[in-house]
Nucleic acid binder design. Structure first.
Lengths: 188, 188
DNA sequence: GTCTATATACTGATAGAC
DNA sequence: GTCTATCAGTATATAGAC
């Protein structure tokens, strides 16, 4: 792996583990086993490097989520598969966590990919919920937009509960809770 | 207000706005209009001050939530009143945000009040959901524990969505989404 | 491309005068 | 109780040699 590559991957790791404010150029260089000079040769500074790292994380997430959501199965089955996927629950969501970072929120270049990711995710899920309603699988009483917002929020909030409890079970309970509600509204 | 009081209140404000890692003793002193010496006279350091501040925020939250949940109305009405309460959505949850702070999570003294708050909230809500089921207001198919986890998670995740979008509407959609699902399972 | 030197400001605290 | 002085270490670079 090239030095540039190692810098990007190290930044991704640290942004996930500690966020943006709490990650210093020095931390990144150490993890990447790269010198000060290398980092500033490849990137203009911490901000640009973070942007590249966040973009990559967002793209990967999008691709892996889309793989599940575009897969086989009914609408509810795909949503359920997405929510129940294996996750490193206690590490939290690498994108969602950034919304709590004051320096990320104060930097338009860094918020942009975060905003785009959630906008995409919510509309992708809304489309699937709508599909389920049209197919007669889900009750016509379900509104796709607010329901998909609730689904994504449960996922993001599940991470918060799990971290507060230091136990992935809290995440799983939240997921099972929303799935049970959705399941009860499926048309059998 | 005493200097000590101003230090605590300033810390509460900064922990809410920027979190723990991103808040320095200097920031606190400046906002509190207190000198270095004053801060270290009243508190052993940043950590102790943060603990006092978090405790106070947690207690206030508990009291105000309990006021709504112990109020009049059916189970679903009280849950709905709680979720729809006025909130400074874009500022996020002053307690939930701390779960994303690496230095808070690494300090047992600081995680403790966060963990206690969520444990309390979830069991308080679970009791109300259970009440609704017993009263025949909610479907017997509803499991109080996982449902209350989903409710709290939706709330916490709603803040994440709103901040990502820089729009409180995303929070409201998530809330209306979970309430619609719960409402559909109420026994009319 | 990578390295070392240098720089300004801030972090989180301690020491001791007043 | 509050103030100023001081401190070792870090944050985030820039400069210029190799």
């Amino acid at each position: 792996m090239s030095t540039r590559e190692r810098l990007i991957e190290s930044t991704r790791t640290l942004l996930w583990e500690r966020g943006y404010v709490a990650t210093s150029p020095k931390n990144i260089q150490h993890l990447a086993e790269a010198g000060q000079g290398s980092m500033y040769h490849h990137f203009s500074g911490k901000e640009e490097l973070a942007r590249v790292a966040i973009d990559r994380t967002a793209e990967e997430m999008r691709a892996s989520v889309d793989a599940v959501l575009s897969g086989p199965g009914s609408a509810l089955e795909r949503i359920s598969a997405y929510l129940r996927r294996e996750r490193e629950v206690l590490k939290g969501c690498p994108i969602g966590r950034l919304t709590q970072d004051p320096d990320v929120m104060a930097t338009p270049m860094l918020v942009a990919p975060v905003e785009e990711t959630f906008t995409w995710l919510r509309s992708r899920l809304a489309a699937i919920v709508a599909e389920g309603v049209v197919a007669g699988e889900l009750s016509a009483a379900i509104d796709p937009v607010i329901t998909s917002a609730a689904i994504v929020a449960t996922l993001q909030g599940g991470y918060v509960l799990a971290r507060a409890d230091d136990d992935p079970a809290a995440f799983q309970q939240a997921i099972e809770g929303i799935l049970a509600l959705l399941g009860a509204l499926s048309v059998r």
